[in-house]
Design a protein around this nucleic acid. Structure first.
Lengths: 206, 206
DNA sequence: TAAAATTAATCAATCGTTTGATTAACTTCC
DNA sequence: GGAAGTTAATCAAACGATTGATTAATTTTA
């Protein structure tokens, strides 16, 4: 036997290709070539091309969901909690923008039901957690009474929008999220803005 | 003999299928079957499958851009202008959510460069117009000094987010954007929220 | 009747998947 | 301890199906 990590190699290659080319746009032959594995290994390990996709998704979503749980237990104000969530959420997405784009692509296509449900569940879970934070602030009077789920949609949607078209936000044509320096600039600007927006909207006395 | 325009029939069928199944996920044979035309007619009229796609995109984007131009000439306050833009933008997108999703799919995949550039140009043009409105408000002192392009990203991103996962926003599991009644409820809630958000954020005196 | 529109048939290429054979490492048994 | 048996891993080749595109023949239109 040569290598035992061929399975991992396939997952990594497939992940990269799915992000870049999309699911339909990636062939099993490309995955095999990129990973250095034989084509048959894909079906041998994962049953099918879709099996590879599902495994990648499951892994990522688990990993993603785990993060938010910690914040809600800290003994800090609701606004500080929310700002921690924004920071964490933005950091995660900016660290892997292409995967985040692929997730939304899957969500908007709603072809593979297994994946579709998985993503929606994960997103729903995250939303519920953020909703608890904001609702907590409203209940104790520190936040204005706002449309909570819409505000969550704003936070997520703004970040997604920046990630999918960073140059449109930055108004320059050579910003690149793959460049660490550029990425940091864009991410920090996004976080600063979202903190300001939520603070004003949630705590301004009319 | 049925004397309906086959060229138009192909465009309509392709548009529907591309929205539902994605570009790669749609075959020329499906388009032919759905439109009632022969497969060869697709290449006869449009040269290629991609030719069909590009024609659909060009048509839509032109149509979309035309709308925003009117508003900026009205003799109303900047805030009223912005709210008109929000209404118009939301209404457009909610009237054709599947096309809007397809546009973002294309944008996130950046495969077909011709299409990619077209979308980015159109979006950039729209953003510039909205930016002028908000910047105008900031200049005449009626708006706070905010991160203008980020705020535009918020408006667009929030709407996109609602469209791509309406049930997550509405916190119900049976909302359907294809149902006119549901669509109206979701759209109005989105517009109301965005008007409130922008008003508070732009006009609150600190 | 010439041009335009439409058709069925076919093209080479590529798709995801499956096959049967081979390799290397570990178990079992005498 | 070494031959025999068992296992998972890997491979090249081929599978049938489908892809987008093209051909050549036919029909419709003007």
């Amino acid at each position: 036997m040569e290598k035992i990590d061929k399975k991992l190699a396939i997952l990594e290659a497939a992940n990269k290709l799915f992000c870049e080319m999309g699911y339909e746009g990636t062939s099993t032959r490309q995955i095999a070539k990129e990973s250095g594995a034989n084509m048959a290994m894909i079906n041998y390990y994962f049953g099918s091309k879709e099996g590879v996709f599902i495994e990648i998704m499951n892994e990522r979503i688990e990993n993603f969901s785990a993060h938010l749980k910690i914040i809600n237990e800290d003994k800090i104000t609701c606004l500080e909690k929310l700002h921690l969530v924004i920071e964490g959420y933005a950091t995660r997405i900016f660290n892997n923008p292409s995967f985040h784009k692929m997730m939304h692509r899957e969500l908007s296509l709603s072809q593979r039901p297994q994946i579709y449900d998985k993503i929606k569940d994960a997103m729903g879970h995250n939303m519920q957690m953020i909703e608890n934070i904001i609702s907590g602030g409203i209940d104790d009077g520190s936040f204005n009474k706002v449309d909570v789920r819409m505000l969550i949609g704003t936070i997520m949607g703004t970040i997604t929008n920046v990630v999918s078209a960073p140059n449109k936000i930055m108004n320059t044509s050579n910003m690149d999220l793959d460049n660490p320096k550029d990425k940091k600039i864009i991410r920090e600007r996004t976080i600063t803005y979202l903190k300001d927006l939520t603070t004003v909207y949630l705590t301004t006395k009319k």
